[in-house]
Computed example of a mutant assay.
Amino acid sequence: MQTETVALTHEKETLLITLWAKAGESRLPDSLLKDRFAAEAAARIDYDFARLKVDRNMMIGLAMRASTLDGWVRDFLKRHANAIVLHLGCGLDSRVFRIDPPAGIDWYDVDYPDVIALRQKLYPARDGYHLIGSSVTEPGWIAELPRDRPTMIVAEGLLLYLPEGEVPLLLERLVRHSPAGEIVFDAYSAFGLRLIALQPSIKATGAVLHWALDDPAELERQVPGLTLATELTAYDPDGYDPAQIARMSWQARLAIQFFSLIPPLARLGLLLRYRF
């Protein structure tokens, strides 16, 4: 098996955290994601993943987050047979293969050129699948997207790394470009961002976190046309199967229960779905 050497640093290197977590969760006998593509890709990368200190709890937590976002994408595609999917800061995520969109859907993965080049070595081509090598904050690449089709926009584990002022600008450009659609992503309060920065996996990469969102209604004010449709707190029982949390260690389950009882702690992390 041919291996690929990576030389990613800082924010780019964090994509290896999510890849390793999803690959590891997919190897568990009770896997939620069952993401063989992530497992195969991780196995081909020459990198010391142990330095990222991704444990079983993180694997399960990131798999739960990904599964919820996947579900929102599938729901959108059921309602819009001619949609496009725009995966911002796709990293090495294999979402397009997990969801396996039907014919008629065009899927665009966007990330830095060196990340896209690595994707091309690890993942196969498929009909209707397009790769765009660019920083998401550069406005020029958006012109490559169709303007006349409903659009599902996914940004998982991305926006917190962008400069604070760039997030509403990016979202506004996308809303102006597309006739209608949805935007789904994870967001963190200012306090939540400080806690994430202390995680060993993040510290190992040297990544710097910037964008926080304490009030989801703030984005409605900053980006004309956005309307908040769904807001889930971390491990919200309305959005997550309790059986998945039961797979975690007792220490993690106790912490989740404690955090859920205190609103500011329960809202450290959010999964959000906006319509436009």
Rank of each mutant, 00 (worst) to 15 (best):
M152Y: 10
D106L: 04
L219P: 06
T3Y: 10
D30Q: 15
G239C: 08
Y240G: 03
A43P: 04
T230F: 09
D127F: 07
I99R: 05
I116H: 03
R119F: 03
L270E: 12
S26H: 02
E138R: 13
A143Y: 01
H87G: 05
R247E: 08
F49T: 03
V175D: 01
L16Y: 00
L28N: 10
G91C: 02
L193Q: 11
P29Q: 07
E13H: 04
R173N: 13
G71Q: 08
Q244V: 07
A190D: 14
F185K: 02
T227C: 14
R119S: 04
A255I: 13
D30W: 12
M59N: 09
D46A: 15
Q120A: 15
D93Q: 07
K78H: 15
C90W: 00
L86D: 00
R273M: 01
A207T: 07
Y235H: 15
A125C: 06
T18L: 01
T18E: 00
R273G: 02
D75F: 05
E138V: 11
T230E: 15
L131F: 11
A204V: 07
L228I: 08
N82H: 13
R194C: 06
P146Q: 01
I142Y: 04
L32Y: 07
P216G: 10
R119P: 01
A187N: 07
V184D: 00
F191W: 14
D70H: 09
W107V: 01
G24E: 11
D186L: 06
D100T: 08
G225I: 09
E4T: 15
T137D: 03
D46V: 05
E40C: 09
A43T: 10
D93R: 03
D75M: 07
A7E: 12
E138M: 11
D109Q: 09
V167C: 04
Y274I: 07
A50V: 09
T68F: 11
V175W: 03
V136N: 03
T3E: 15
P163Q: 06
L32M: 11
W211I: 03
L122M: 09
Y108C: 03
R147L: 08
R126H: 04
L8F: 14
A50Y: 10
D127S: 14
G225C: 09
T233S: 15
P124T: 09
K53H: 12
R56F: 08
S249N: 10
Y129L: 11
L86T: 02
F258Q: 13
T151M: 12
Y108I: 00
D55F: 06
I245R: 14
H87Q: 12
D186F: 06
Y274P: 04
I183T: 07
H87M: 05
S67Y: 12
D100S: 15
M58R: 12
H87E: 11
D238L: 14
T18P: 00
L209A: 08
A155N: 06
